[in-house]
Each structure stands twice: as structure tokens, then as C-alpha cells.
Design a protein around this nucleic acid. Structure first.
Lengths: 343, 343
DNA sequence: TTGCTGCCCGTTACCGCTAACATAAATCGG
DNA sequence: CCGATTTATGTTAGCGGTAACGGGCAGCAA
């Protein structure tokens, strides 16, 4: 374990490398960033010195001096939702060879937490920001407006964005699901969802769903809500509860696939004829569904593509040459699966 | 939208706030960090000015000047594994009110990617680093050794760490599972796992498992591997394949709960007597299992606690007053569930 | 009054790096 | 063989904060 003469545990700086290789700090900096003209001889010398010393550049200093930061902030409500890791994977794949790096912040569906996470992120002066949802506190919105960097609000297009927006219309997703259910002949429809009132998108889906029912002269026959715990198990419990209370229901609409899957398993075990006697549908299109005994009807939320398109906008590789304020509405695809009877 | 006289889109600095409130930059800095003595009158004045201007401090400059960074790097192989989001949640909860903030990097199980992610992270000079696994490239190990910050390697204790280590012994986890299976009277045992050879921990579990079988004079009767795709579906397909090839197997050990769940569903659908005719076990204790028709035998990997303990070490709140080189081995609990017959 | 203390605030010198400009040596056409 | 480029390197001045220290002023005991 070699160490510099002065202090054995001092962090290395450009100066150490420059002294070790006998050139100026500036030249070392140029070599390490592949910038400007440097002769092959000195380049080798410098790289050699940096390698043997184990030098790691200090990006904090670099960013301050160059006024450039290769970070992209990504703010999402949760990591356990399964949806967001997929969005993230779309983002990081797209950012892969742009030199940009995502930094993740999690809000736990709390607007106050979102505000503080956003503040913290902006204080690192990222070169772009991707944030889930269109609904923020007034302070958060102001920060976004004044940040002076590209902002992309994702997941949702039902509302007004600060800058660019990439997502689907959750209202219309709910609406279309309702239409498909009604078209298939179901009439006594129950809804099962999360209690979290801060999940604006689930709320919008429900609103659209009710709207779709209303257009056919129908309304929700019963509802059931949960919070916390294993979603699959909750799906079972809620399904049992709602069917006990309202045995005449002929359709159950779940706010996400996980509880829908639980409900599906419960119905099959209890001998319900699915989709004859009762129909089921969820939301999201998680690939978990492929392994279930029967494929749950769902609607793909285009998670990976949302991530990819958002990242493209930040990296300036958006298909439109637009400079900002871009709005991309993706179309969620209804997958009937095996739990809605064919009309 | 108010703007400063010079440039409407220039980012705000301490100087702007100091001019707006008529005090020095230093005083503004003190107010915003709650440090040193400032009179209530000026404090109010400064906060007021900062608020109306919408000033967001520049942590890059702050970190450079103070040589302190409130970031903790966290490097994990994947976000879709379900295990890691849980570890992360343990970490962020524990870090919540320490002023420290986790920054996540993902390696996709690639040692080269790990190396570059690590380099990138260290270049931001975080005040601590949590990284999954004990197995790294030589260059990565050297970086870790010379980083000069607390390092915690998590998940795994079968090997030698650079600094602190928090995890379970995957070798012994596999070993104990084998012992339990043998004790329950199963003899013709198959293994189903991922093809990813870079998942060192899965490999160690398998090694321990084989060791446990060998101690009883047994060995694996058949094996089946997969990569990519929906784990639940793969679990089904692999189960079908292995049982077709080796119909006399009486136990299936899966390298994770997800494929185990798929296998369980397949066996139940095809009328297998579980756990009489055939036993099943997975690994991890994901709470998904609670919703399955039968509870899969598994072994809890203590994910949240691993995250929490690692974070404690970084934040200096570890229970031992130790300064580094701490090794915490947690004990995974075997949950027999309903898929191993009671001896 | 003198001197000391504690409170409040300002000044100065960096932190480690890079943009922009300056300089020195090598190349070159006419 | 000279001025005009080109190539390779060095010098200077910050980037936007903060540590460390300095100093004015009020309060107070001697």
C-alpha cells in the first residue's frame, strides 16, 4: 500500500498525478477526459501514473468548474410497486451510452417527501429531471418551473405539465376497461383497490371507469379497499370479503394486477366459473401474469417505453426536434386474457 | 416570474440572496445551514429573501468547500429481483433522519459494469458505500480498499470482505435446506435455477446444498436452468420439463421463490400430491408467497435487516462501537410452509 | 474607566477541477 | 528562411460555497 510523502491517507488529486508524471495538472485533466490535443507519449505517461496511484477524479470539483453535471434525477413514489423498477430499467437502458447517469429518489407517495426529495435533487444541479405524476405541491411545482433544466413528468397525461410529459391517460384507461366489460355483458360490477388516496393515477383510473359505467347507465355495485401487506394475499381476502357481502357481483375490477392475481386464484379455488359466472380484470400488464393458471385481463401501462421516451427527451434524442414542452401520450393496450368472456 | 436584473435565466447563488437581504454571503450560508450564531431578526430576513427568490443551495459547491458529502452509494445487481428493493427500503428507512441520502447504482450482475459504476460513484466522494456481494474484480477491490470511506459488503458472508460485511451464509442456507429435505425423507432431488453464472450467491447456495446432500450419501438427481422471462412462467415450464425427463423425482429445490411459486402452481394443477408425492422449496421468503394456494417452503434471507444494519454501520449507529471491519452474520430462518412433509 | 467575555457578522483563503487564454515548439508553403 | 499556421503544453482565474479567523459592540465585574 504505497502512499504519498505528506499524508498517507490524503485523497489523491490531480496534482499528485501531475507530479508523478511530470506534466501540468491541466494536461492530466485533458488526458483523463480525452479532450484537446495531447501527444501519445505524454498520454501514456499520465495514464500510467494515474493507474498506479489509483487516482479517481473528483467529479464534485469537476462539475463545479465546468458547470456540467452528468446526472439525471428520477423521482418515483415507490420501488416495491414493480411498475417503477421497469420504468427505471427503460430509463437506464436509454441513458446507457449518453454519459448521463440516473439518480433515484423515492417519495413513498407522500407529497411532502416528494417536495424534500426534489429540493435535495435540485441542489445537486442535475442536467435533467424525470418525475412521476403531474400532481405536486405548489412549492414543488415552483421549483420545477424555476429549475432551468429539462423536466419530464411521466406516467400520466391527465393534467397540465410543467415542461414535457410522457405517459398514458389513466382516465381513458379506466374508461376503456369499463366499455370492454359492459360490452361483454357484465352488469353488476365491483371495484377493489388501494386505500392510498395519494395514488392520483389509480384515482383517475377509477374516475374514468365510473364514467364508462355511467355512459351505459351503470354504476359500481360495491367497493373494497386495502392498504399494506402482501398484495396477492390482500387480493384473496378482499375478493372473499366483497363476494360474501355482494354475492351477485358478476365482475371485479382490480386497481392493480397483483391483487387481481390474488383474486383470480381465490375464485378458481372456490370453483367460480371464470369468466362465465364472474369476470376479472386488473391493471398494468406485469409479466407475472404469464405464469398464472389463467391470464388475467389487464391493460398494459407501457412502463418501459415511458421510461425510454422520457430519457430520450432528457438526452436530447427525442424523435421530434422539439426543445421542450413535448407531450407524448402512449396508448395502453387492452389485453382481454382469459378472464373476460368474449362478446 | 421575477428575475434578477442581469440575466433572467441565471441560476441563483448565495450572492443573490445576500444582496436581497443586505447581509454577507457567509451569514446567508449560516442561516441556511442553521450553523453558528445569527440573530433572529437577520435569520428571518434571510429566510424570507431565500424563499421569495426560490433559492436552492448548490450542494456541489458546498460539498467541495466543506469536504463533506451527504451521499451513501449503494451498488446492487438488479432492481427487478424483488430482493433488492427490499434491501433498499431497509437502507433508506434507516438513513432517513441521519441527513444521509442513498444513491443507487445497478450492475446487471456484470462485474465490468460493477467496476464502472463503482468508479463513477467514488468520483462523487460519497461518505460511505454499500455494495452487494464479496466478489469483485481486482480493480474494483483495489478501489474499495483505497476509497478511504466506510465500505459495507452485503448479502453474503462466505468469503473475505474489504471492510465491514453484513449478510447470511448462502452456503449454510443451502446446506440447512438440504438437511431439512433429507430429514423429511425425500431422496430423489432435483434443482432448478438461473443460468446466470455471475450470481455468486445462488452458486454458493447450490454448493452448500450439494454438500448437505453428500453428507447423507445423496446427490442431485437432475438439474434445470433458465434465463430471462417471467420467473413464474419459467418456473412452470422448467418444472414440467424436469418432471417429464425425471418422473421419479420426489423433491424440487428452486433457486428463488418466484420460480418455486410457478412450480407449485404447476404441480397443483397437474394433481401432484404436495408435499406427499413431491416436495418443493424456494429461497428468499418474498411476501408474495402468502397469497399462494399453499405456502412454499423457503428460507428468509433477512433482506430488510441486512439493509438496516448496513446503513447503521455507515451512519455510525452500529450497535458495536467498532470503527470498521465489522462482520455481522444474520441467521436465515427456515420456513417449512406446506410443501415439505413433516417428519 | 479598563479589560474581558460573548454575541453577531464580515473577510480571506481555499476546496479540486476546468474554460479560456497564453506560450513555446514544430510544421509548412512560397 | 520567414511569417502563418498547427500542435502540445502551461498559466490564470474562477465555479459557489464553507472553515477559520478577525473584529466591532454591548454587557459587566473590578
Amino acid at each position: 500500500m504505497s502512499h504519498s510523502p505528506a499524508d498517507p491517507r490524503r485523497a489523491l488529486t490531480l496534482r499528485d498525478v501531475s507530479e508523478a508524471s511530470g506534466v501540468s495538472e491541466m494536461t492530466v485533466s485533458r488526458v483523463l477526459r480525452n479532450r484537446g490535443d495531447v501527444s501519445d507519449a505524454t498520454r501514456e505517461k499520465v495514464l500510467e501514473a494515474a493507474r498506479t496511484l489509483g487516482y479517481v477524479p473528483n467529479k464534485i470539483a469537476g462539475a463545479l468548474a465546468s458547470q456540467r453535471v452528468n446526472l439525471v434525477g428520477v423521482i418515483i413514489p415507490s420501488l416495491s410497486n414493480l411498475v417503477f423498477p421497469e420504468v427505471l430499467s427503460g430509463i437506464s437502458k436509454e441513458l446507457e451510452d449518453t454519459g448521463l447517469q440516473p439518480v433515484i429518489g423515492v417519495t413513498s407517495y407522500s407529497p411532502e417527501k416528494e417536495e424534500s426529495v426534489l429540493y435535495e435533487m435540485l441542489s445537486w444541479r442535475p442536467s435533467g429531471l424525470i418525475i412521476a405524476g403531474l400532481d405536486h405541491t405548489a412549492a414543488a411545482r415552483t421549483m420545477l418551473e424555476n429549475a432551468g433544466i429539462p423536466i419530464v413528468e411521466i406516467m400520466d397525461v391527465d393534467g397540465t405539465g410543467v415542461d414535457s410529459v410522457v405517459g398514458i391517460s389513466h382516465r381513458r384507461a379506466g374508461l376503456h376497461m369499463a366499455e370492454a366489460i359492459v360490452a361483454a355483458g357484465y352488469r353488476r360490477i365491483g371495484f377493489l383497490g388501494t386505500k392510498v388516496t395519494q395514488d392520483y393515477r389509480a384515482q383517475k383510473r377509477l374516475d374514468g371507469f365510473k364514467e364508462g359505467l355511467a355512459a351505459a347507465g351503470l354504476s359500481l355495485s360495491d367497493e373494497e379497499y386495502y392498504s399494506g401487506g402482501s398484495a396477492l394475499l390482500k387480493g384473496r381476502e378482499m375478493t372473499e370479503a366483497i363476494l360474501k357481502r355482494s354475492p351477485d357481483l358478476d365482475f371485479l375490477y382490480y386497481s392493480n394486477d397483483m391483487i387481481g392475481a390474488g383474486g383470480l386464484l381465490w375464485c378458481l379455488e372456490h370453483g367460480y366459473d371464470v369468466p362465465g359466472r364472474i369476470g376479472l380484470a386488473g391493471f398494468n400488464g406485469v409479466d407475472l401474469l404469464d405464469g398464472l393458471p389463467r391470464r388475467l385481463a389487464t391493460m398494459d401501462a407501457c412502463r418501459r417505453e415511458i421510461g425510454a421516451r422520457a430519457a430520450q427527451i432528457i438526452s436530447g434524442r427525442g424523435q421530434s426536434g422539439q426543445i421542450g414542452g413535448e407531450v407524448i401520450e402512449l396508448e395502453p393496450v387492452l389485453q382481454l386474457g382469459d378472464t373476460i368472456r368474449k362478446a
